[in-house]
Design a protein around this nucleic acid. Structure first.
Length: 361
DNA sequence: AAGCTCATCAACCGCAGCCGT
DNA sequence: GACGGCTGCGGTTGATGAGCT
């Protein structure tokens, strides 16, 4: 690895483990047990830090590890658990005997997330067909390609420095508007699942599938990770939630209000968008400001940050654009971010077209 | 065959939470 | 309650090998 690690600085080894080191670690833990990681390396005669030893043991040397390919059943389980728990890998790993959080995380990032992404894209664009024409691999846009794309987008932004300011105003107005409407709405309705569903119905809020996804993106606020991978909205949980409401309607649901509220709303809102008093928190408003500042810096040629940082921020802005909630009837609900023409699919299509054109502008 | 791109995996880092003092 | 040490977690990175042009 290129940079010097904290271990190297204090004279400890880092990087790949040798067979000898593995043997020492296994031997020590077999006779002394796990734990006391801080003192373990010294006692075991290893020039490693405790953290490194712990990681090596848990992710590689432990005896009860399965290793090898994930079965279809395991994949299904991971997808399902990820929909419920999000990126809580240790939680997910605890449901999969013999698999580590690190292994599952890698597996998710390299394979499963892009399958989920393709599922989402199917609604509007057959990505596999488009990509197959030129690219040899399907799905996720790689880090390096995303990086190039974003560099390109930034250079385009340099040519139109007035755009961010226009967007800033629009974003703030619409975020504020939306926040007010949702907060009032949730308060007025005591955050009760069947009330919300009934009320949505009475106000003629009719969602099409992709609009449910868009709304979810808005509530989630984190539609894309730093490597440009779209996180999958909680379709399973939405279905679950709808089933619960059906139960309620036919009087079969015996559970108390708190329980139902917790399950349906916290899942639906992804657990993070609402605090304990039932007030919706606005996603990523800080991020918008930050991004606007950076764009300005960039335009003034003052930006010294590295490509990765800019990549993260611009991708995070892309997720913001996704928040352009496309309500079925804007006049009915008064929520319009002003980005109704821009959603995640548009952004991704844009990237794919850019690739298709050879990645140059 | 060479060079490039990408996927995968192991390992590292920073941070938050827990616990003892 | 404040503080410090330890542990565990999630995000990120670099090495490597496979596949493609």
């Amino acid at each position: 690895m290129g940079r010097s690690t904290c271990c190297e600085k204090i004279g400890l080894k880092s990087g790949k483990w040798t067979v000898e080191e593995d043997e020492k670690l296994v031997k020590y833990i077999q006779s002394n047990g796990e734990g006391s990681w801080k003192s373990l390396p010294k006692n075991a005669g290893l020039l490693r830090c405790g953290k490194s030893c712990r990681l090596r043991w848990i992710n590689y040397l432990r005896g009860d590890l399965k290793r090898g390919h994930f079965s279809v059943k395991e994949d299904e389980m991971i997808v399902m658990l990820h929909k419920s728990f999000g990126n809580r890998w240790s939680m997910i790993a605890s449901h999969l005997p013999g698999r580590t959080d690190n292994e599952i995380k890698n597996h998710w990032n390299s394979r499963l997330s892009r399958q989920s992404y393709r599922f989402l894209k199917n609604a509007s664009l057959d990505v596999s067909t488009l990509v197959n024409q030129k690219k040899r691999r399907l799905g996720r846009v790689s880090r390096s390609v995303a990086k190039k794309y974003n560099q390109n987008m930034f250079s385009r932004n340099n040519n139109s420095p007035s755009l961010p300011k226009v967007m800033e105003k629009q974003v703030h107005e619409n975020l504020e508007n939306c926040s007010n409407v949702l907060t009032t709405y949730v308060k007025d309705n005591q955050v009760h699942d069947n009330v919300i569903s009934g009320d949505l119905e009475s106000k003629q809020f009719e969602f099409e599938d992709d609009e449910v996804f868009n709304i979810h993106y808005f509530l989630e606020g984190e539609a894309m990770d730093s490597s440009g991978v779209l996180s999958m909205p909680d379709e399973y949980q939405i279905e679950q939630w709808l089933r619960e409401i059906e139960d309620e309607n036919v009087g079969k649901n015996e559970r108390n209000v708190d329980e139902r509220e917790d399950e349906s709303l916290s899942f639906y809102l992804e657990g993070e968008a609402m605090d304990s008093s039932g007030v919706l928190s606005m996603p990523d408003e800080y991020q918008i400001e930050q991004w606007m500042r950076e764009i300005e810096d960039e335009n003034g040629g003052k930006n010294e940050r590295n490509v990765d940082e800019r990549e993260d921020e611009s991708l995070s802005l892309d997720s913001l654009k996704t928040m352009g909630v496309s309500w079925y009837d804007e006049t009915e609900c008064d929520i319009d971010f002003g980005f109704t023409g821009l959603n995640m699919c548009d952004e991704e299509d844009d990237m794919l077209h850019w690739l298709w054109e050879g990645g140059n502008h």
